[in-house]
Amino acid sequence: MPEKRTEKIEHYVAPLDETPLHATDNVAEDVQPLSLWAEAWRNLRKQPLFIISTILIVLIVFVALFPGVFTQTPPNQNCLLANSDGDPVPGHPMGFTLQGCDVFSRIIYGTQASLTVGIFATLGALIIGGTLGAIAGFYGGWLDSVIARLGDVFFALPLILGAIIIMQLPFFRENRNVWTVVITLTVFGWPQIARITRGAVLSVRNADFVTAARSLGVSRPAALVRHVIPNSLAPVIVVATVNLGIFIVAEATLSFLGIGLPPDVMSWGNDISSAQVSLRSNPSTLLWPAAALSVTVLSFIMLGDALRDALDPKARKR
């Protein structure tokens, strides 16, 4: 500083006993090792959102696997037209449908179809979208462009419109079952997973640890499988979990439009759809399966939300 000053600057030194000098960069030895997944698990365990959704999902899966445990009433037999739209009576806590079937029993037995569609459509989208997205992101170049355009093409066909086209084809119309719905949802669901995976892989691909692995002699495909993919999983898992819920809703919507599951398959979508005629006289036949569906979907979306918070890449860097 050019100016001259007269006042004296005090030279202060803190007392040593109050400011002890620590070794530079010492390692704390008494800490338990904690992997990223273990750390995420530790965060998750404390989240009420995660606890509630997990309990619900476990319950729902159990219902789907063993419906007989929850109700003794067979869902399709003993439907008496005398009971049509009947109110709840002991043993039939949710009343009866228009056909006089037990609503509760139908909900229990309908779980399987909805859950199967959700799980397998998610798996399908994960396998196709995940593979294509990872390849596109990691190898880049023309492969990336082709896959990106292909994804755009499917994106340009909104899910329900695409499903309408597919499901009215003779092949699908004649073989309508759970699997045709799964295929339809997969075909129009993969581009989203591909985009997410591609983005995640792209952000990891140029990380120094991948370059380091390459210069250690790890081949490109091995680097992709061992380093890039495990580090790109988090956002994909989150989106896939949320999508599972969305697919269940989509199945119900398709069934409502009459192009989803065939009417003889017991599913929440079909039950809601067939209950619409008696909405004004007996709204509970519609509301109960709708509630079952919504709670299921909500569980998956909440689980996805909780996972997102726990696996947030921004929170991972300390």
Binding site: G245, V249, I272, L287, L293, S294, I301
Partner: peptide, 14 residues
């Protein structure tokens, strides 16, 4: 979250 979880046609009917 609840709104997202309810199918649009149920929302419509209600």
């Amino acid at each position: 979250l609840i709104v997202i979880a309810i199918p649009i046609f149920v929302l419509g009917f209600v």
